[in-house]
Write a protein that binds this DNA or RNA. Structure first.
Length: 594
RNA sequence: GCACGCGUAGCUCAACGGUAGAGCAUCCGGUUGUCGACCGGAAGGUCGUGGGAUCGUCACCCAUCGCGUGCGCCA
């Protein structure tokens, strides 16, 4: 007898016998007739129990949601008028002749057969139940398809997928490491990789040429909706390539993946912006390109203004007065503008100026300080149409740009221009090679210390490092950084100078990067690559607000696994073997649900 | 570490400072074409925790715990 999945039963099966296994999604007991919706990953099939089949009928009356059963019976067409167009199997049903209860279920702590919102902690504690629900079934399916498409894409181009170790050496800089104590060498520790960066560069030195990996990475930093301590990267590296080579192949990969996994066409070429352009036009180095609303500099309207708090920002390169257009914003209430002002303040601005342009006349938060001419000049510079409003942010260039960029996203949200089912990619390139730590003013890499400067700029290292551009490119989707890549330094002497620039001593370089510096001296090919955040990519593809929705067993925002209740203390025996003494008592397991 | 929001029945949520309630789920009974079945009934609460103000609190104040979002952090 053929086995059928719950979603596979079709009109072509009518008249045949079938065996179907699944979970009881719902029972509808009509007394003289019982319906069971049987569910598996594939779908739902309706089983009908008739009193004539005495044994099966009696069992049917005892079935409850999430019991696991095997039914056998005749697939038949549903009586006319009782078809269910909501189900793919809605034309047919199984007249059950025999039912075996394979497992009983307790009453689940939340509804498994509905998509209703449930407290996320509860979902995480009972993740195996949450996984049965359609949302995660769908998301994990999409994730599989995306990862498979990526692997197929690189396989066809003769990349090798190579696994790199998870127990590696701690290197300074960057995020905090997760560490694992060594039993064999008490007092020493492995670190878990923050990314396979150095390893993939060594694969290039090793003559692999084209490498890819779906790699697990670990960073001991605080969480966000799109960031967990443990995450997955697509890691790619190639030898004898330039920036354009890498960007082309990664762009092709996105197009292929979207087509094959999602059935969507991404229009090419994907727009390319310089870092400076992205900041000026969108106030962000990861602009959301789903909508226009570009930022406009309206400082010219305030040239020679007597308004003190604007005059200081109205000229020169150090300051800006930036307008964000709010289409239809003229009809907003005073309360709405107050809320926008509050938002601007939380973004770091001192305040917010708004000007409304209804069909007749104008209104503004600083109406007393403005005249018709100035207001009209601002309107022209800001590109406002009748019915719009302009939100003005004044301040030091970086701050004003950043706040305006965030206001732009807020306006985009309010006018519904950021739908999760639209995908707008862009490249951002020509990043500065270095930036200053805002607190210490120390020089630091914008990307990482292995990034190569733009060709021919090496000499600037001694004279004006902050003028140097990097061969560094980001792929951005809907305002999220999907991934970063760069052409790496393959000259050991230049790499040494970069490390020294960041204040690493010869000794530190030798201790931490000795193996890497050695390798560069044995014929390292020019190379470069990229890494994407797979969780983020799938999250966006699924239209989900958090990467937890596309990971089977995620940690929560406080880095706990609520299902396993990890992390947890270990035994004295384990500590002794590892040569560890605890200074602090283990933190109490913080799971409120246990 | 900081800011904001949330915490009431198994789930999702209500409740003007004056007797804690609804829908769904659960349990029982009825029910032969439902598919969020239906009808009738029952059971289910330390209002996160601890203080305080008040004649009186789920509601107000303080502290604390948990969860979420953001900031810091994330080469």
């Amino acid at each position: 007898m053929p086995k059928r999945s719950c979603g596979a039963l079709a009109a072509t099966d009518i008249g045949t016998s079938a065996e179907i296994n699944g979970w009881v999604n719902r029972r509808r007991d009509h007394g003289g007739l019982v319906f069971i919706d049987l569910r598996d990953r594939d779908g739902i099939t309706q089983a009908v129990f008739d009193p004539a089949q005495t044994a099966a009928f009696e069992i049917a009356q005892t079935l409850r949601n999430e019991d696991v059963v095997r039914i056998t019976g005749l697939a038949r067409r549903r009586p006319a008028g009782t078809e269910n167009s909501k189900l793919s199997t809605g034309e047919v049903e199984v007249a059950v002749e025999r039912v075996d209860v394979l497992a009983r279920s307790l009453v689940p702590p939340f509804p498994v057969n509905a998509d209703a919102d449930v407290d996320e902690s509860l979902r995480l504690k009972y993740r195996y139940l949450d996984l049965r629900r359609s949302r995660l079934q769908r998301n994990l399916t999409v994730r599989h398809k995306i990862v498979k498409a990526i692997r197929d894409f690189f396989d066809e181009r003769e990349f090798l997928e190579i696994e790199t170790p998870c127990l590696i050496k701690s290197t300074p800089e960057g995020a905090r490491d997760y560490v694992v104590p060594s039993r064999v060498y008490p007092g020493t520790f492995y670190a878990l990789p923050q990314s396979p960066q150095i390893l993939k560069q060594l694969l290039m030195v090793g003559g692999i040429g084209r490498y890819m990996q779906i790699a697990r990475c670990f960073r001991d930093e605080d969480q966000r909706a799109d960031r967990l301590p443990e995450f997955t990267q697509l890691d790619v590296e190639m030898s004898f390539v330039d920036e354009a080579d890498v960007m082309t192949i990664m762009e092709d990969c996105i197009v292929y993946t979207w087509r094959v996994a999602l059935g969507l066409e991404v229009s090419q070429p994907i727009p390319r912006l310089t870092y400076a352009e992205a900041l000026a036009r969108f106030g962000s180095d990861k602009p959301d390109m789903r909508f226009e609303l570009e930022l406009r500099d309206v400082a010219a309207a305030f040239a020679g203004t007597p308004i003190n708090f604007l005059a200081e920002h109205a000229s020169g390169d150090a300051s800006r007065i930036i307008a964000v257009r709010y289409p239809g914003g003229a009809s907003l209430s005073r309360r709405d503008f107050d809320a926008l002002t509050e938002s601007a303040k939380t973004f770091g601005a001192g305040g917010l100026i708004w000007i409304c342009y209804p069909v007749d006349g104008w209104k503004s938060s600083i109406a007393k300080l403005l005249d018709d001419t100035t207001v009209e000049t601002i309107r022209e510079l800001g590109g406002a149409e009748p019915g719009d409003a302009l939100l003005l942010v004044a301040g030091p260039t970086q701050l004003a740009s950043d706040v305006a960029g965030k206001l732009r996203l807020l306006v985009g949200d309010k006018i519904g221009h950021r739908p999760t089912d639209r995908f707008a990619f862009c490249w951002v390139k020509d990043f500065p090679l270095f930036e200053r730590d805002p607190e210490t003013q120390a020089i630091a890499p914008t990307h990482h210390p292995f990034t190569s400067p733009a060709p021919g700029q090496e000499a600037l290292l001694d004279t004006d490092p902050f003028a140097m551009r990097a061969q560094h490119y980001d792929l951005v989707l809907n305002g999220f950084e999907l991934g970063s890549g760069s052409i790496r330094i393959h000259d050991p002497e230049f790499q040494r100078r970069i490390f020294q620039l960041f204040g690493l001593s010869e000794q530190t370089i030798a201790d931490r990067f000795g193996f890497f510096m050695d390798a560069l001296q044995y014929g390292a090919p020019p190379h470069g690559g990229m890494a994407w955040g797979i969780d983020r990519l799938v999250m966006l593809a699924c239209g989900e607000p958090s990467i937890r929705e596309v990971i089977a067993f995620p940690k929560n925002q406080t880095a706990r696994d609520l299902m396993m209740d990890a992390p947890s203390p270990i035994s004295q025996e384990q500590l002794r073997e590892l040569g560890l003494d605890l200074k602090a008592k283990p933190a109490r397991g913080a799971n409120p649900l246990t």
